[in-house]
């Protein structure tokens, strides 16, 4: 289905999409004299899985931070489902239905798995300070939220852990929890920052299934990933960044054949062994993690 959507879209950077959920114009971010992000124009098609790739330090996480209100760009405009997001604080962006996760998981370790889930729910009057004092009013909603959380936990195979502190989960389970928690916000666009990083192969497989399922339910997904196999497997469309710019985009086949992409990656790893330590240091440093 999604492949049809892109039938008439040319694989050139900044190309317009038939039904964009996210539109970015001229967003740029400088640190000192260095340009971390500089996007002329970018559109994300609604209801598809869009992969965002690029060498370390390409500015992928910074772009996520900018778009979701966790960082402020030096200039530019962007909108989500027709809502102008410029200057909007992160929590308002999330409430509009554009929810992000983080490269380093932010499971709330000292809260139970269930409390983590409930936190994602919106519209709970008990979260207001005066509403909190009227338990008979928030209890009903709480039950509703809990029921919704149960379903999601079941789906992400975390139901047996519901009353455990999130800190007792394994790294992979925390990734799952973070994804499930984000879904509690009922997003229409979900932005995943390396959801597969540090997750064992079996869990990666199930995460992939989950992400595809989200798309099939009509959600839009943007995700940052390093693993090329994963990208090629599930992306309907791929965006490629290097040195802050959008250098290429297209379907998996287009991108794989694009010389600019190959150049960007070869240039990055030229004459050096990329040890795991290097990876960590660089991605944290250059991308400026969440």
């Amino acid at each position: 289905m999604p492949a049809d959507v892109f039938a008439d879209v040319q694989p050139v950077p900044g190309v317009a999409k038939p039904d964009p959920v996210l539109v970015v114009d001229g967003v740029n971010r400088h640190f000192g004299g260095l340009v971390a992000v500089d996007i002329d124009h970018l559109e994300v098609q609604r209801g598809t899985i869009t992969g965002l790739i690029g060498p370390n330090g390409a500015g992928k996480t910074t772009l996520f931070n900018l778009l979701t209100g966790f960082d402020t760009p030096n200039g530019g405009t962007w909108s989500f489902s027709g809502n102008d997001l410029v200057g909007l604080p992160a929590y308002r962006v999330a409430r509009l239905g554009m929810v992000r996760t983080f490269q380093l998981t932010k499971a709330l370790m000292k809260l139970t798995v269930m409390d983590n889930m409930k936190l994602g729910a919106t519209g709970q009057s008990g979260e207001k300070v005066f509403g909190a004092l009227l338990p008979w009013r928030w209890r009903e909603k709480e039950k509703e939220i809990e029921a919704r959380a149960e379903v999601l936990l079941e789906r992400f195979t975390l139901a047996h852990m519901r009353d455990e502190l999130a800190g007792t989960l394994s790294g992979g389970q925390r990734k799952l929890l973070e994804l499930a928690r984000a879904l509690m916000v009922e997003p229409t666009l979900i932005m995943l920052d390396e959801p597969m990083a540090g997750v064992n192969p079996a869990l990666t497989e199930s995460l992939l299934v989950h992400i595809k399922a989200l798309r099939d339910e009509g959600m839009s997904v943007v995700f940052i990933e390093h693993d090329m196999d994963v990208i090629m497997d599930i992306s309907d469309w791929i965006l490629v960044m290097a040195e802050g710019k959008l250098i290429a985009e297209g379907g998996p086949a287009d991108v794989a054949a694009n010389p600019a992409v190959i150049d960007a990656y070869l240039g990055e790893h030229h004459g050096e062994a990329a040890t795991p330590e290097n990876e960590v240091v660089e991605s944290e440093g250059e991308d400026g993690d969440g």
């Binding site: 640190f31 260095l34 971390a36 990055e268 660089e282 440093g285 250059e286």
Partner: peptide
């Protein structure tokens, strides 16, 4: 890459990190 970034720091320039 790492070595390059390190020597850049040692030369007294700034890396692009925005460390909150």
């Amino acid at each position: 890459m790492t070595g390059r970034a390190g020597s850049r720091l040692l030369a007294g320039q700034h890396d692009p990190v925005d460390d909150p």
